[in-house]
Amino acid sequence: MEVFLQQLINGLTLGSIYGLIAIGYTMVFGIIGMVNFAHGDVFMLSAFIALILFIALQQFLGLDALAPSFVIVLFASMALTGLWNFAIERLAYRRLRGSFRLAPLISAIGMSIFLSNFVYVAQGPRNKSAPPMLSEVIKLTSGGAYDVTLSYKQILIVVVTAVLLAAFWFVVQKTPLGRAQRACEQDAKMAALLGVDVNRTIAATFVIGAALAAVAGVLYMLYYGVVNAADGFVPGVKAFTAAVLGGIGSIPGAVLGGLLIGLIETFWSAYFSADYKDVAAFSILAVTLIFMPTGLLGRPEVEKV
């Protein structure tokens, strides 16, 4: 029971991070029908940016208090990562929009390889360990065979995720930008004819997706305390799995899928084998697609004949 409760907490924490990344996949897929393969690496990049900014605040400005530096780092990382994804969309994808479908995919894969190696060159191949931050925990149970703990970090992750998702949901549902996004998702050509600036809407989608990935990156850096240039690929594929599991194109689906993947992964590691936890995630991806191609919350698609 204790193990179960502990894994539930850990799984929800991890799942929040996957869910944040998954939104970026699902939005981009929804609006231009492309798997943005580089998104996992954008997430990794944001974790590095966050790490460097944290240290910079300490080293250059002597800012040691966690709360203000966390807020600064969070928003600065979101802005910088958003700018990165803006540039990536502009340079690597825009010209290929509406072109043959393999070209953007290969371009995205190339961008993914570029980004991970760029960080590798810029920051070196070794793992970077962040200074320990916010390591207090709350003991939820004690006296049993095993103390179930809830760390402040975990609370922070879940709370930040929930708050930002709410803000994001507001943007997508209630603002003109969100409306333009949904219009482009339905029919970009028609939206353009009705005066929606499609290029700008798509760019905004990339920026928002990257900003959410940056939130995930900051939280990931905080939670694990270690980042590496190769850390983009696997979380990226898992977040994509989450997006597919939830039903690609559906934003609540992406969050739900992320939570499920996080839970499945932690439970699998706890009860079966940590070595094969990625196999579990990938198998779920395959099984979902084969038996439920529209995912949990996706729209059913009738084959047009």
Binding site: V35, V237, V244, F282, S283
Partner: peptide
């Protein structure tokens, strides 16, 4: 056999997943 009903990017991602599964099995 199981994946060829899928289309487009879905097929790409599932084949990617299978590629990774085989690699992870080779590692472990």
């Amino acid at each position: 056999f199981p994946v060829l009903r899928l289309r487009g990017d879905y097929l790409a991602i599932v084949t990617l997943a299978f590629g990774e599964i085989i690699r992870i099995v080779l590692v472990n």
